[in-house]
Amino acid sequence: MSEKISKETVSHVASLAKLELTDEQLPYFTDQLGSIMGIFDSLNDVDTSNVEPTFSVTDQINVMREDVADNWGQRDALLNNAPDVSDGLIRTPTIIDESGD
């Protein structure tokens, strides 16, 4: 796991995370992610062969409740936070770009 991360991998990861990196940013982030990944190598020293992973430390398991919808009745207040609203609906650009080619 100590292999240095490549620009191509960083670029791929950025696209998975819906981020775009400029040509200047790509080497900068590649370097930094490489050194961050470097500190993870120390985990190879730890023997975890018989260890269960811990994903949460809550003491609550399977909290049940009635499956009822709660209408907060605050549509307008919610829409106030939306960047683009029309007729009580949130507007977005077209899903398929038809403007150019």
């Binding site: 991998t9 930094q32 992610l33 990944m37 985990l43 730890v46 975890t48 260890v51 992973p53 994903f55």
Partner: peptide, 30 residues
């Protein structure tokens, strides 16, 4: 924030989940 999103995305991605996220969760147990 971008750095952390990318580190996280990488750690959870196919092929790396066991080596990173799962391993870290086991160390958490220890």
């Amino acid at each position: 924030v971008k750095r952390r999103i990318m580190v996280g995305t990488y750690s959870l991605s196919a092929g790396f989940f066991d080596a990173y996220f799962k391993k870290a969760a086991e160390v958490r147990t220890l």
